[in-house]
C-alpha cells in the first residue's frame, strides 16, 4: 500500500514537472511540437521459447509472427513499439510522455506491458503431450506497468533505465527495474544494434508468474513462494532497407534468468535464445 502511494506521488511530481517544463519553454528544451506517425505491418519467422516447464514450440504458428504497429508522436506524447517490435504482440507498444527531452538525456513517464501473461489451459491444448505441472493452474495476466524512464544519449549509444510498478495496472503486484544499453553501428545502409540489458524483478512479480499457491499445489507442483529474479540479455539486431516501403530485419537475443526462476516447479529453462528474421512494411 505504501509502495502504491509512493508511485502515485512520483507521478504527481512528474505531472508538476511536465507543467513546469511547459512554463519554462523559453529556457528549457521541451518536447518537440511536431506531429509524426508511422503505421507498420511486420511479418517474421521467430524462435521464441518460453521458460515454462515442458512447454515446447510446435506447429508453424509458433514460428510465425504477424503484427501491426503504430508509432505516433505529438507534443511529447508518444506511442512506440520498442520491445518485441517485430513480435506478435501489438499490446507491447508503449504509451508515454516526454517529461524532459534534452539533446543528450530524457525522462519519460510511460505505460507498457513488461511481462507476457499465460493461460495454462491454452498452453496445454497446444501441446502434443500433457503437462501436469500446468494442469489446473490459474491464468497469469500480462504484467502491465507504469514507469519512469531515464535515457542517456551519447552519439550512437543509448542507455536507459526504468523503474516500473506493475501493481497499479495488473495483478502482478510488484515492481521491476529494467536497464538497457544499445550501441548503433551504421555500416553502409545497414543499421546494426548491439544491446545488453539487466532487469530485476521483485519477488512479488516473480511469485505471481512462477509461484504456486497452496490451493494450486499438487503432487506435480509443490507450493512455492518465489524470490526476486534477475534477467540478463545480450542481443544483436540488424536492419536493412529493401525499398521505400519494405525493410529486412534479423536479430538474436540471448537471455539468462537467475536461479530463482529455475527454483520454481513451473519453469525448466534458465537460458533462452530468441531469434527473429522478418520484413516490415511501412505505410
Amino acid at each position: 500500500m505504501l509502495f502504491k502511494k509512493l508511485i502515485v506521488l512520483i507521478f504527481l511530481l512528474s505531472a508538476n514537472l511536465a507543467l513546469a517544463n511547459e512554463k519554462e519553454s523559453t529556457t528549457t528544451q521541451t518536447p518537440d511540437s511536431d506531429f509524426s506517425w508511422q503505421f507498420m505491418i511486420n511479418m517474421a519467422a521467430v524462435y521464441d521459447p518460453v521458460f515454462l516447464k515442458d512447454v515446447e514450440l510446435n506447429g508453424i504458428d509458433d514460428f510465425l509472427a504477424f503484427s501491426l504497429s503504430l508509432d505516433l508522436y505529438y507534443k511529447g506524447f508518444y506511442i512506440q513499439s520498442s520491445q518485441r517490435r517485430l513480435g506478435s504482440q501489438f499490446y507491447s507498444s508503449e504509451i508515454g510522455y516526454q517529461l524532459i527531452n534534452k539533446d543528450d538525456w530524457a525522462i519519460d513517464i510511460l505505460t507498457k506491458s513488461y511481462i507476457s501473461g499465460y493461460s495454462p489451459k491454452y498452453l496445454i491444448e497446444d501441446q502434443d503431450k500433457p503437462i501436469p505441472t500446468l494442469d489446473g493452474l490459474n491464468d497469469r495476466d500480462s504484467g502491465n506497468g507504469i514507469a519512469i524512464r531515464y535515457s542517456r544519449f551519447i552519439d550512437n549509444d543509448l542507455f536507459s533505465v526504468e523503474f516500473a510498478s506493475l501493481g497499479v495496472l495488473s495483478r502482478a503486484d510488484g515492481w521491476l527495474i529494467d536497464s538497457f544499453y544499445s550501441h548503433l553501428i551504421q555500416y553502409r545502409n545497414w543499421d546494426i544494434y548491439l544491446g545488453g540489458g539487466a532487469t530485476f524483478y521483485s519477488s512479488r512479480v516473480i511469485d505471481y508468474y512462477l509461484g504456486v499457491d497452496l490451493e494450486e499445489a499438487n503432487e506435480y507442483r509443490p507450493e512455492h513462494q518465489a524470490d526476486g529474479a534477475m534477467r540478463l540479455q545480450a542481443e544483436i539486431f540488424a536492419q536493412h532497407p529493401i525499398s521505400e516501403n519494405w525493410s529486412f530485419s534479423a536479430g538474436i537475443t540471448q537471455n539468462y534468468y537467475s536461479n530463482s526462476v529455475l527454483d520454481s516447479p513451473l519453469a525448466d529453462k534458465q537460458y533462452i535464445t530468441q531469434i527473429l528474421i522478418g520484413v516490415m512494411y511501412v505505410f
Binding site: P31, D32, D34, S36, Q38, D48, D71, Y73, Y78, Q80, S82, Q83, R84, R85, L86, G87, Q98, A106, S151, F153, L158, S160, F180, S182, L184, D191, Y193, G195, G197, Q233, E235, F237, Q239, P241, S243, E244, N245, W246, S247, G251, I252, T253, N255, Q274, L276, M280, V282
Partner: peptide
Amino acid sequence: VGWVHKATPRKRRWRLF
C-alpha cells in the same frame, strides 16, 4: 535518395525482445 522511416522528433530506440 528515398527512405523507409521518415524523420521523427522522437529519438528511435530499438530492442528486439
